[in-house]
């Protein structure tokens, strides 16, 4: 079995990559992908923890095998899908108006 430390380590690395990607890239498509990377890092952490503690939080009432972590992953995937839909919508609209997907080209909403 893969030890938990490895799972968490991979998750942390993926998450950091995502953060860095969002922070330093100007291309909106890449930024969206980086966000997806962060979300999936979290998903990985969820399933990893759920594998180690399948009964859920200590002393939780109810079933012996509560699949809280895995169910939460489904939730995150749903939200991520919705978020990408909106993000790509904005992206297309932006490209039509500016012929660009560089976020530095859209900075009118300011003081």
């Amino acid at each position: 079995m893969v030890p938990l430390e490895h799972v968490i380590g991979l998750s942390a690395i993926l998450f950091t990559l995502g953060v860095i990607g969002v922070a330093i890239r100007r291309n909106l498509i890449v930024m969206l992908m980086s966000i997806e990377l962060m979300l999936n890092a979290v998903n990985l952490a969820f399933v990893g923890f759920n594998r180690v503690w399948p009964e859920g939080p200590a002393g939780a009432a109810g079933a012996e095998r509560a699949l809280d972590g895995q169910i939460f992953v489904l939730m995150v995937i749903t939200v991520a899908a919705a978020e990408v839909a909106v993000g790509l919508g904005i992206l297309i609209s932006m490209f039509r108006n500016r012929d660009s997907v560089n976020v530095d080209d859209v900075s009118l909403l300011k003081w």
Binding site: A23, V103, D104, V106, L109, K110, W111
Partner: peptide, 17 residues
């Protein structure tokens, strides 16, 4: 305070992090 509102997405991301 209004100068925090720069309009640059990168800046917001940085502040959030």
């Amino acid at each position: 305070l209004k100068y925090l509102q720069s309009g640059l997405t990168q800046g917001y991301v940085f502040m959030m992090i």
